[in-house]
Computed example of a mutant assay.
Amino acid sequence: MTDIPEPERAVVLIPKAARDAFAAAIDVRVVATVEDAGGLNWYYAAGTHDADRLEVALMPGGEEIMLRMSNDRSTTVVCPIEQWHDLVGKMIPPDAPRNT
């Protein structure tokens, strides 16, 4: 029988002002991450690794969200937490029922 090592625990501190927007960012099935050269984690939707995809990172300090496309990582867009929250709140997941 092989011993399975205990998984490492990580602590993520998110400012209260950023909590709702960060939850909205990861609520769209964002469960995968890619780390850039600076050690910043970029989140993206699971199952999209082989496709062009949107990647989202919470700025240090938690007041802004950075967005970039995986096919052009040299270009990022920064938006305030409130603007991101408003945008994500209006998005409809592909499998959600639509009101028609």
Results as ranks from 00 to 15, higher is better:
Met66Asn: 12
Leu58His: 02
Ser70Cys: 09
Lys90Ala: 15
Trp84Arg: 01
Thr75Trp: 05
Gly38Phe: 13
Tyr43Gly: 00
Ala45Gly: 02
Ala32Cys: 14
Pro60Arg: 00
Pro94His: 04
Asn99Arg: 07
Arg9Lys: 07
Gly62Trp: 01
Trp84Asp: 02
Gly62Cys: 04
Glu82Asn: 06
Ala46Pro: 00
Ala51Met: 15
Met69Ala: 07
Ala24Ser: 13
Met59Leu: 15
Val56Gln: 02
Val30Tyr: 14
Gly62Lys: 02
Tyr44Phe: 15
Val77Phe: 15
Ile65Cys: 03
Ala37Asn: 08
Pro80Ile: 07
Leu54Glu: 13
Val28Arg: 09
Pro94Asn: 03
Gly89Glu: 10
Phe22Leu: 03
Asp20Gln: 13
Met91Gly: 00
Gly39Thr: 02
Tyr44Glu: 07
Thr2Met: 14
Met59Gly: 06
Gly89Lys: 04
Ile92Thr: 14
Ser74Cys: 06
Arg19Ala: 15
Met91Cys: 13
Leu87Asp: 13
His85Asp: 12
Arg53Lys: 09
Ala17His: 10
Ile4Ser: 10
Thr33Lys: 04
Arg9Pro: 00
Phe22His: 08
Thr48Tyr: 04
Met66His: 11
Ala32Val: 02
Gly61Gln: 01
Tyr44Gln: 04
Asp27Ile: 04
Val11Gln: 12
Leu54Asp: 02
Asp3Pro: 01
Glu6Arg: 08
Thr100Glu: 15
Ala18Tyr: 00
Val12Glu: 09
Pro94Val: 03
Ala46Lys: 08
Gly61Ser: 01
Glu82Cys: 03
Asn71Ile: 05
Asp27Ser: 15
Ala32Leu: 11
Ala21Pro: 07
Pro5Ile: 06
Pro80Phe: 06
Trp84Cys: 03
Arg53Pro: 05
Pro15Glu: 12
Pro5Val: 01
Arg73Phe: 03
Asp27Leu: 11
Arg73Tyr: 01
Leu40Asp: 06
Glu63Val: 00
Val11Asn: 07
Ala18Val: 09
His49Gln: 09
Lys16Pro: 03
Ala46Gln: 13
Ala96Phe: 14
Val12Lys: 02
Arg98Trp: 03
Ala21Arg: 01
Ile81Leu: 07
Glu6Asp: 13
Gln83Gly: 00
Met91Ser: 09
